[in-house]
């Protein structure tokens, strides 16, 4: 059984004059000890997906009642408040782009981690503080004995991000949701955090869902990739397959648009994806990417493609319509 199984997740935001379908019928699963990267541009629904997994969507947003999020055999969307409270920060932990989202500025770092340990593991106060210090040490924060007594503002951005990671993994979660945790950080610090996540995941048999806009960042880090666009799954592949040969033209275009290390303007022109990400009001009838796609043909404009399975990969593109029969895919 998969650790997490998401079926037909849809999340809408009812705004004053229209409804935004932020996430529109997404299905995927996360296996034990696996890192899944959810990749996409702004507005593709990646962060809303992550928030939905923890049932953290607040009004005016709502998760469609036909959605299912099965974690260890139980539907997260049917849990009551106390079960949810135990789940969040317990078996599923979360880290954000802004560490300030996790820390209360008025309490010391150590006591906040200890608090989490007390809630989720029933540790005694003194014991929890000792453990907090060990955790800070394990995320390679120097002088952990001094840092536990620090307030959040006394730590640098990178250190705070580590401390947040320490807080998140303090209760040995089965699944870590990381929503753009390195976007606000410098490259050297970003590398340190990625390394830390990798090490912690393999050491503690933890699965990771890593939400990001940065394709380059997840190569060599993620096991599988789910590419989102306008609230829809565009491609699901293993990372090596994807980076070797992205199936969806959107993925391919993205790879060609990135100024990769070692390209220079005098010998290489970057591919330009025309147009822009559609918002709710300008979503096309057919494939959401059709207006920008260089491989677009009539069918793409008129009809939205379903998710086709190609050699155990999924892709939402009419180009793969006839290759669909080659294997029996996951998407039934």
């Amino acid at each position: 059984m998969s650790l997490l199984e998401v079926r037909n997740l849809s999340t809408r935001f009812k705004l004053i004059d229209h409804t935004v379908r932020a996430v529109d019928g997404i299905s995927f699963s996360v296996e034990h000890n696996e890192t899944l990267a959810i990749v996409g541009e702004s507005g593709c629904g990646k962060s809303v997906t992550a928030m939905s997994l923890m049932n953290l969507i607040q009004a005016p947003g709502e998760i469609d009642s036909s959605s299912e999020i099965i974690f260890e055999g139980k539907n997260v969307l049917e849990m009551n408040d106390s079960e949810l409270k135990e789940l969040r920060g317990g078996k599923i932990a979360m880290i954000f782009q802004e560490p300030s989202a996790s820390f209360n500025p008025l309490f010391r770092i150590g006591s906040q981690i200890a608090e989490a340990l007390k809630i989720h593991q029933g540790a005694a106060k003194d014991e929890a503080l000792v453990q907090a210090e060990k955790l800070l040490d394990s995320v390679k924060i120097s002088e952990p004995d001094r840092r536990v007594k620090n307030y959040p503002f006394q730590l640098s951005g990178g250190m705070l991000q580590r401390a947040m990671t320490a807080l998140a993994i303090s209760c040995s979660p089965k699944l870590l949701l990381a929503d753009e945790p390195t976007t606000a950080l410098d490259v050297t610090i970003q590398a340190q955090i990625i390394k830390l996540l990798q090490d912690e995941a393999s050491e503690k048999n933890m699965s990771i869902i890593f939400v990001t806009h940065d394709l380059e960042l997840i190569d060599g880090f993620a096991d599988r990739i789910m590419l989102l666009y306008a609230g829809r799954v565009f491609e699901q592949s293993t990372a090596p397959e994807f980076f070797d040969n992205p199936l969806h033209p959107y993925g391919e275009d993205l790879m060609n648009a990135i100024p990769r290390m070692g390209l220079f303007k005098d010998e290489h022109k970057l591919y330009t994806i025309k147009g822009q990400v559609p918002d709710e009001k300008s979503k096309p009838i057919g494939c959401a990417y059709a207006p920008r796609c260089r491989k677009c043909f009539d069918k793409c404009v008129n009809e939205e493609p379903p998710l086709f399975s190609v050699n155990s990969r999924n892709v939402r593109c009419w180009l793969f319509e006839n290759k669909n029969l080659s294997t029996d895919g996951e998407d039934k």
Partner: peptide, 15 residues
């Protein structure tokens, strides 16, 4: 900087 810059090379970040 060059070592830690994310790259598409199939390799994990090395520090």
């Amino acid at each position: 900087l060059m070592a830690v810059a994310p790259k598409i090379d199939g390799k994990p970040v090395s520090l």
